[in-house]
Nucleic acid binder design. Structure first.
Lengths: 249, 249
DNA sequence: AACCCTATTTGATGCGGATCAATGTCCGGC
DNA sequence: GCCGGACATTGATCCGCATCAAATAGGGTT
């Protein structure tokens, strides 16, 4: 199970917390929540647009409510590497830092639940719970980053693609409901280019390997984006990971 | 400046805190420190030995006092990727998790300042400061992991080596004192194989690229491990990073 | 100083993924 | 239904790094 988010958790059952970001309190500490409520504001960013540029002043922290965003780093000569994939409930920004360290880009239309940084930091100081939650989330992200490093450093192109698919499946909330045995069906939230940036490959190689997995019956494609995975275990075999999945969260 | 460590910070000037791990309190909250004192114990691990295996029960968290340790992940077929490089003052282990997620190996002889997990977690709950510090450190690690991802995904072998050297220079406390203009001199704390594991390369490629940098006068080698960098800016040019260094901490 | 063990260097060759270059396909607008 | 443009596929070739295979150099021991 993924840890609860700081400010929004989709699918969280909590009848007393009609506002999504109330998910912050699994235990419903209502005073703190009222305070968070007062601070928050929403912001919607159209698909393809950059939310913040690396190096920009960033006077807020935020939680993804809906849509998908990415963190990317760019080298002088234009080479880019995605370093974070943000799905609903993920946290953006760093308390205690003024400037954004990465480009944040909306892959689909994204809605953010924002908190101005100063008041948020103040509140963090007064409410240890928030810091605790944030620590948990950050540790989860660090683990994900380290899995990602193994992928970037040591996996073949085919293994990279297979691994990315399992990551998407595992993190897509709408798929958590389906059992693992039947076929899984979903739309890829990323273009081939974004997949390439994620995986440290070129988009041509991504395309070729996706085609290869299709030829081999590991996945079924309908159109460019819609994917069916007839047998999840078969896909897992392609990742190079241990059979038990290695995913810790 | 690197954030202060949780439990040990070399070179920290604090006359009231003779015990290194007292560095936890930049502000010297002595009550908390007395409690930490009571919990801590030291453990020394000889060079080359594994501290914890991935998947093992891990009933402590710790702070590196001296020496160098690594976190590595291994795939079924034996491919390995280093995912963390732990220098003095770095934190090991994850509060709230029973099993180690990675192999922790002592590269040199390592001394750890350990805290049994249960009491430490309890204390964390009572002392928000500790959680705050831990959050800061974790965020720093996450940033480092993301730089590392760019390296693994997009840099050439030569750029990887140059980048590793700058990272070692920047993190080696004993080098922080020297100015950036004169030649820097130090011993590599890693074997060629460990460097390869860090960089997602083979040891042969590491060796070749080190030789190439030597041929080109970017570095000077005395023996196998001792390195002199006559011109740090020249080395920086080889990393592919922005001129300003990109390092945020 | 001779010896041994391991880390490292260097060489020869092959392959996986990058690069360059068309071609094909989907989708929205008119 | 036709068209335009972005996204995606496929093909041909090249190059950087991996792989396999010796040779060499340090560093510690006797």
């Amino acid at each position: 199970m993924r840890a609860h988010s700081l400010a929004t958790t989709p699918n969280l059952k909590c009848d007393d917390c009609p506002i999504r970001h109330r998910a912050v309190c699994a235990k419903c500490e209502t005073d703190e929540l009222r305070e968070l409520d007062a601070l928050k504001y929403y912001r919607t960013v159209p698909a393809g647009q950059t939310v913040v540029w690396s190096g920009d002043e960033m006077d807020f922290v935020a939680s993804i409510v809906s849509g998908i965003a990415t963190l990317t780093q760019t080298m002088e000569d234009g080479r880019t590497q995605m370093v974070g994939l943000l799905l609903p409930s993920d946290f953006v920004g760093r308390p205690g830092r003024a400037q954004a360290a990465y480009d944040v880009t909306a892959t689909t239309e994204v809605t953010l639940c924002c908190f101005r940084k100063r008041p948020f930091e103040e509140m963090m100081r007064r409410t240890p719970n928030i810091g605790q939650r944030l620590l948990e989330m950050t540790l989860d992200e660090l683990d994900a980053a380290r899995e990602w490093m193994l992928l970037l450093g040591r996996k073949t192109a085919r293994e990279k693609i297979a691994t990315l698919l399992t990551i998407i499946v595992r993190r897509d909330a709408s798929l958590q409901l389906m059992g693992r045995d039947g076929p899984l069906e979903f739309d890829l939230p990323l273009t081939r280019e974004a997949m390439a940036d994620y995986l440290g490959l070129t988009l041509e190689t991504v395309s070729r390997q996706v085609s290869a997995l299709r030829r081999d019956g590991v996945i079924v494609l309908k159109g460019k984006r819609h994917i069916t995975i007839p047998d999840f275990d078969r896909l897992l075999e392609e990742t190079g990971d241990d059979a038990d999945g290695g995913m810790l969260t």
